[in-house]
């Protein structure tokens, strides 16, 4: 584990499994058997036009937990993730059936404003996507467009960058273009940008897949830090990463749907990460995790 200056490592107690290090809750936080679901899928189907990409997902994302979504390519992880903050609204023809509850309220309800949903459920993308603006303006953009009341934008920017563990590296060049940063820094900037609007949930779609191992470790550490305040859902292709960071893991796979003729994603198994990785109950999960399939 990388030791960041001035930070104690013991806040995260690694639980060594065979070959992979598996995450466990910090000593102060006990992981209940059932997640206290702040965000919850109830029998969710997602369609692109007539194509059913995902079906029948029942899932609870626990408050202040990190939940990993894993599964083979094309099984609908990104699709499901994007339906959790209504990013799919912008894809012509995309449609969600079933209910996605945030704090008990259906985010697809008729009175719900998708923009407000996205403000409270932020998203970090696979490829770092900073805006073609300065570092400062990248952070300030969210609070500005959402009309947040801010006492001091400078303080807010500093706070967000600090939480994203980027402040030290960029504090002297806030006015420079965000494109001058390295890929890993850009991704942390995108996380900082998301934090700045103070969402409740952060969705991350393969946030480290474009990054090198060192940058990846930094982001993983950051996620552990952020878990104190935020609920995180992460899609990852990297099994070790899921094992390292996630409190709970959901395994998806795609099956050839006889009825519709589509390859449709389903949730196979969901549980504590330790359980999914050490004692999977479903044969498909075990095959995937041990690398026999995928």
């Amino acid at each position: 584990m990388i030791d960041r200056a001035g930070e104690k490592i013991e806040s995260i107690v690694p639980h060594e499994g065979p070959g992979v290090r598996i995450n466990a809750r910090p000593a102060d936080g006990f992981l209940p058997d059932e997640p206290r679901g702040i965000l919850q899928c109830e029998n969710v189907d997602v369609y692109y036009g007539s194509f059913r990409a995902v079906t029948g997902v029942d899932l609870k994302f626990g408050l202040h937990e990190i939940t990993a979504l894993i599964g083979p390519s094309g099984c609908g992880k990104s699709t499901l993730l994007r339906s959790l903050n209504r990013m799919n609204d912008l894809v012509d023809g995309a449609r969600v059936e079933g209910r996605v509850l945030f704090d008990g309220e259906d985010i697809y309800g008729s009175k719900v404003d998708a923009i407000e949903v996205r403000r409270r459920i932020g998203m970090v993308f696979q490829k770092p996507n900073p805006f073609p603006k300065s570092i400062y303006d990248n952070i300030a953009y969210g609070p500005r467009v959402t009309g947040m009341r801010v006492d001091s934008m400078d303080d807010l920017v500093e706070e967000a960058l600090t939480k994203a563990a980027l402040w030290g590296e960029v504090k002297d060049k806030l006015k420079q273009s965000a494109y001058s940063l390295s890929g890993g820094q850009q991704q942390r900037l995108c996380i900082a940008r998301t934090i700045a609007v103070k969402p409740d949930v952060i969705l991350m779609d393969e946030p480290c897949s474009a990054l090198d191992p060192i940058a990846t470790v930094r982001i993983e550490d950051l996620m552990h830090e952020l878990r104190r305040e935020y609920t995180i859902v992460i899609v990852t292709h990297n099994m070790q990463q899921a094992a390292r960071v996630a409190d709970r893991t959901a395994f998806f796979t795609a099956f050839a749907d006889e009825g519709t003729g589509d390859r449709t994603g389903v949730l196979v198994e969901f549980g504590k990460t330790t359980q999914i990785f050490e004692h999977p109950t479903d044969q498909r999960t075990e095959d995937y995790i041990s690398g026999r399939f995928g």
């Binding site: 903050n85 990013m87 912008l90 996205r118 403000r119 993308f125 996507n129 969210g142």
Partner: peptide
């Protein structure tokens, strides 16, 4: 203009 820029903005709660 890449879609990622639009998605980045929308995911922060900006309107279209």
């Amino acid at each position: 203009v890449p879609t990622e820029i639009r998605e980045g903005s929308l995911a922060l709660g900006a309107t279209q």
